[in-house]
């Protein structure tokens, strides 16, 4: 049976297989995604980022658990989790350990957890993470949580991909200048101070609060709330979920939901265009010409910009 059709019917093995095909950027993977793309655009994408050890995985575990067992009156959502961990730059291997903290979710057919290695990509996500998210979206998951690599200062990619970005902090991880450097204000829709039972939580929250107060924003703009949580005990999770729902409502009311969708698709289009153009162009040029250009650089006869110019003008430096 056709892989795309099986996925739409809710076949988990087909979904798992297709995720691998897409992760490996195979022609089959592209074809499945091509068939399923019309079914995307419905899920709420929630990004979770922050420094290593702030408790991102435990928080994702608690959030997914609560979304699955909502208070009376609310519908449970199906949840997909994409957890990205770093690949070793030396061996290309990876140790993906996010599932350790997600034991509570085992046995729930409404949850699908997929671990991803970053495979050399910087910025906290893997190159194919957005395609993986699209597949989960098409498969009908209501909520997709994307947990980034614990990088700390370069998580712009996640803000571009997600509708709602949670930046997770913990007490005792550096002063307010660190927070400003990391550009949290620019990307955070919700600030989470996790491990809030630890000493120093007031200082952390005050530093974040004063940063927020300094930001110049129009009156109608979303002001990121600060939520205190203790993920290992489930404390503060209900408030955090309320904040996530509030943000979703804000996105719909302000029209930002469509805007973000457009921005995201534009970024993806540009990226794929760039990659495709480069790989097509590389096929038109011989390895010898390419090596000759590098030789000219090494001998300092051409600057990198001049070398590119001459390669593009017929490939004869």
């Amino acid at each position: 049976m056709d892989l795309a059709a099986s996925i739409l019917e809710g076949n988990r093995l087909a979904l798992a297989r297709a995720l691998s095909l897409i992760e490996n950027d195979t022609p089959d993977g592209r074809s499945v995604l091509g068939k399923l793309f019309p079914h995307t655009g419905r899920a709420h994408l929630i990004g979770i980022t922050g420094a290593p050890g702030t408790g991102k995985s435990s928080l994702v575990n608690q959030l997914a658990h609560s979304f699955r067992l909502p208070p009376v009156g609310a519908d449970p959502c199906t949840v997909a989790i994409v957890a990205v961990d770093p690949s070793s730059p030396f061996s290309g291997g990876a140790l993906l350990g996010d599932r350790i903290r997600m034991r509570d979710l085992a046995g729930d057919p409404g949850v699908f957890i997929r671990s991803m290695a970053s495979r050399g990509s910087l910025g906290g996500l893997a190159a194919t993470t957005s395609s993986i998210v699209q597949l989960f979206d098409a498969a009908g998951y209501d909520l997709i949580m994307i947990e980034t690599v614990g990088v700390g200062q370069a998580e712009v990619d996640i803000a571009r991909l997600a509708h709602t970005t949670l930046v997770v902090e913990a007490p005792g991880l550096g002063d307010d200048i660190q927070a400003i450097k990391a550009g949290i204000l620019e990307i955070a829709d919700i600030l989470v101070v996790n491990k809030a039972d630890r000493p120093g939580v007031e200082n952390t929250e005050r530093a974040l609060r004063s940063m927020l107060d300094l930001a110049q924003k129009p009156e109608t703009a979303w002001i990121p709330p600060i939520c205190r949580t203790v993920a290992t005990q489930g404390a503060g999770i209900a408030d955090l979920i309320a904040a996530i729902r509030q943000h979703r409502k804000h996105l719909h009311h302000s029209g930002e939901w469509q805007q973000r969708d457009r921005t995201r698709l534009r970024a993806e289009l540009e990226l794929i265009l760039r990659e495709t153009l480069v790989s097509r162009w590389r096929q038109t040029i011989t390895e010898a010409d390419f090596q000759r250009a590098i030789n000219h650089l090494v001998e300092r006869r051409l600057s990198p910009h001049q070398a590119v110019e001459s390669l593009l003008n017929g490939g004869k430096p």
């Binding site: 690949s87 070793s88 030396f90 061996s91 290309g92 291997g93 990876a94 140790l95 993906l96 350990g97 599932r99 350790i100 034991r103 085992a106 046995g107 671990s115 290695a117």
Partner: peptide, 20 residues
């Protein structure tokens, strides 16, 4: 060791049931 050999290792931790 498997990671250093270039594999992607999903480590799930202690006390797993066969179903998990």
């Amino acid at each position: 060791a498997l990671r250093d050999a270039g594999m992607e290792v999903i480590y799930t931790g202690l006390r797993q049931t066969p179903e998990m």
